[in-house]
């Protein structure tokens, strides 16, 4: 089952072979992840270091010369912060928040889905009714509600996105796990005296997880957009840790005076990243659908 298994790599490659747009998406995702990870090494300036900022460099258009003699490729904001550097650091925060939220949220959802399928009875009823409750509200509104109640901050945004992520995965996993529970290997494991938790994690989980893995990229791009929207509305990450959404919000005040670069460049990066993830997600979903695969 390990990821290094050559046959699995070959399988993944098979999904992408002959689909140049999806391959471009994969390359794009790799690029953005590398930039985000190595931002402190790559960025021309540390945008949070006040001593490196010069208010005289404020609101310069792209390709301007800074006071230090450096060229600011994408211009500067009102505080004289280099947009390119701010975008690189913002990317880190956006990706960190969304990945943590989706992985924790999906993990929670998968666990609850498996639990519902194994225990049945009232446990299943409670879990599935909670799923229904959550699914009857649009995600962005639920997140707004939660942030209105508990206040803002990086941790709060992550909680809000976790609550947005778990329900659909629980529903998905439960439906697969219910049919897996009827199969003989589960009975065999029971007869061998293996404990419930071990059956769940070693037998049921690997056999029920595929549909969740298929929707995971879509969940991540959704979380990136949701985080950006919340931060843009001023109920997300704090000003000291600006994600891409907050950078766009900062530029919003200058948009009407024609200073477009402050909002547009962070937005372009945001869209490019979401688009890359979405084309890859579309490809994985189509590949996982045996009906569509037969037509290829």
């Amino acid at each position: 089952m390990s990821k290094q298994d050559p046959t699995r790599l070959e399988k993944i490659w098979k999904a992408f072979r002959g689909h140049p747009i999806a391959i471009a998406g994969l390359i794009g995702i790799t690029f953005f992840l590398l930039v985000a990870f190595f931002a402190p090494l790559l960025a021309p300036q540390n945008p949070y270091d006040q001593t490196q900022l010069d208010i005289l460099d404020g609101l310069l258009p792209p390709m301007s010369q800074l006071g230090t003699g450096q060229t600011s490729w994408l211009g500067t904001d009102a505080l004289g912060r280099d947009i390119l550097s701010a975008v690189m650091y913002g990317l880190r925060i956006s990706l960190f928040v969304s990945f943590v939220a989706v992985i924790v949220g999906s993990g929670l959802g998968v666990f609850l889905g498996l639990l519902a399928a194994m225990k049945r009875g009232w446990v299943e009823t409670v879990i599935m009714r909670s799923v229904d409750l959550k699914m009857s509200f649009p995600g962005i509104l639920l997140a707004l509600m939660l942030l209105a109640m508990f206040g803002t901050g990086v941790d709060k945004v992550i909680y809000a996105l976790i609550i947005g992520a778990w329900a659909s995965k629980a529903r998905l996993v439960r439906s697969v796990a219910l049919s897996e529970m009827k199969k003989e290997y589960i009975d065999a494991a029971r007869l061998a005296g293996i404990g419930n938790l071990r059956i769940m994690l070693r037998f049921l989980l690997p056999n029920s997880i595929s549909p969740v893995l298929v929707v995971l990229p879509m969940a991540i791009s959704g979380a990136i957009t949701a985080e950006a929207t919340l931060s843009f509305l001023g109920v997300g990450v704090p000003i000291t840790e600006p994600s891409l959404g907050l950078l766009i919000a900062n530029g919003n005040d200058y948009l009407l005076s024609g200073k477009w670069w402050i909002s547009i460049f962070p937005g372009l990066v945001l869209v490019a990243m979401v688009l890359c993830i979405n084309v890859v997600a579309d490809r994985i979903r189509d590949h996982a659908n045996p009906y569509l695969r037969g037509k290829e």
């Binding site: 957009t225 948009l255 909002s263 869209v271």
Partner: peptide
């Protein structure tokens, strides 16, 4: 689908 609603608004 990929362009966030709020950024479309700014554009």
């Amino acid at each position: 689908y990929s362009i966030p609603n709020f950024w479309q608004a700014l554009l």
